Amino acid sequence: MNGIKYLSRNGKSLLAYAKVEGDIQPGVLFLSGFMSTMNGQKALALEEFCRKSGQSFVRFDYTGVSDSNTEGSVRNLKSWVEDSIDVFNNLTSGPQVIVGSSMGAFMMMHIAKRFPERVVGMVGVAPSFYFFDNAEKWQKIMSSNDNTELTDRRQMINMDFFTGMNELNLFPDKDSKFELACNLHIIQGMKDDTVPWEETLSVLRDRFSEMTRVDLTLRKCGEHRMSRPEDLSVLVNVVKMMCNDKYKQTASLQCSNL
């Protein structure tokens, strides 16, 4: 395993990351979810795959999280989007396949908006495309007198978390649609009680243009973390296919393990 390194950024806190160097394109970037770190099972499974396949791979911790929790670092949603963009800009080169887990899929979409020419594939695992809406809900709860719904998130969220959030909504109005220049593959568990599979299906149906090439793999026994060995195997195989550019060029919905 590569040791932890730190990305130095002008005027911003250091970001902890681990990188596998590789000569085979495309590279792979992993974006972790809320309350997760770069040392999760999905990140490590993908790192092992890239190490064996000869592709570059990057994983990192957002500002204020785990190994990026340096003195004076402030967690907020806007800074995490900027973290993701900075990592993509400074630690990757050439074409990339981005894997976003839960909230990481929200970050993934912001990268795709900014660098469409370099993002050649995206994989969303239990994707929280509406993470902005959830953050708005948490903001209202925290500004009220009753914070009981946030007891498991108090270490991650304070009111600073919401600074600069307003411009981050992926779908700012009811008619907003996303058009991607690359394939998008979603892996979703049907026992996910954090991001229900029906919500994911609705987003894919209503929020992506007809020109976007989308595949959906539903896992009947899959939960939100999607970290069982069989789930990790599906994830690695999907990333492998995307890196090998074996996808069909037309949109489809694929249901497996039903």
Rank of each mutant, 00 (worst) to 15 (best):
I4C: 06
L7N: 05
L14T: 07
K19Y: 11
G22S: 11
D23Q: 12
I24T: 15
Q25P: 12
V28N: 11
F34E: 00
M35S: 10
S36Q: 06
T37R: 05
G40L: 00
K42H: 01
A43D: 06
L46Y: 03
V58Q: 13
Y62W: 07
T63Q: 09
G64R: 08
S68V: 11
S73A: 13
S79T: 08
S79H: 07
V87L: 12
G94M: 14
S101K: 05
M108H: 13
M108D: 12
M109I: 12
H110D: 10
P116A: 04
P116V: 04
E117D: 15
M122W: 09
V123E: 00
G124E: 04
S128P: 03
N134G: 13
E136I: 13
N145A: 01
D152W: 15
R153K: 15
M159W: 03
F162H: 10
T163F: 08
G164D: 04
E167D: 14
P172Y: 10
D173C: 08
E179P: 09
H185F: 14
I187L: 05
D192P: 00
D193K: 05
P196F: 06
E199M: 10
F208R: 00
V214C: 15
D215H: 09
L216M: 01
R219Y: 00
R219S: 00
R225I: 04
M226T: 03
S227E: 06
D245H: 15
D245C: 09
T250R: 13
L258K: 06
